[in-house]
Design a protein around this nucleic acid. Sequence first.
DNA 1: AAACGGATTGGCT
DNA 2: GCCAATCCGTTTC
Length: 209
Amino acid sequence: MKPSNKEPRKLQLSYFLNNDVIFLAKDLLGKVLFTQIDGKITAGVIVETEAYFGVQDKASHAYGGRRTDRTEILYSQGGISYVYLCYGIHHLFNIVSSVEGEPHAVLIRAVEPLIGKNIMELRRNMSADKAAISSGPGSAAKALGIDRSFNRKDLNGDEIWVEDHGLRYADNEITAVPRVGVAYAQEDALLPWRFFIKGNKYVSKPNKI
DNA sequence: AAACGGATTGGCT
DNA sequence: GCCAATCCGTTTC
């Protein structure tokens, strides 16, 4: 990753309205995800994502136009969060994208600790130098203090938001591979919609090339 | 009303 | 490498 002298810029609503969730999943690599909880700010560079392509994606919770109390939020206008509990233990954080009625989302699978590392270390009870602190969707969310109370949050508020710090990656610095844990999605399980930054130690283990 | 199972993790063998 | 942990939305009886 290359440093940049650009001023950090909070991503605005228009960014999240993009209807190309594959592009967004890739473009979010290098963006910085912030949370503020009781005045404590933590942030991490997004280094791994997965795209979930709405009604036509068998791996998506909204596949086939499925609407339940849980998935309803996916149909909202982009720019809000979708957090759900997985395996009864882990909170998985997604960025809802596209326009109202199109249930696209990007799962944040790993971040590299950037700000408030000491707070993340307390939340995870391990050193920020250990990759496991924020590697994998459940760990990344926990390091940032994201739980179910973060569901349906506006991503342009003061509790959770995303900034562009000018980090840019060339195509050859990004790997695209099939998504993790979606074998049930049949042919859609093979789509290369998981993106990560090559060589970054905070990228989660499964399928690492 | 009851049973099922998951976009995972970490501890133990 | 294997497998238990642990909740609740969703499906099924």
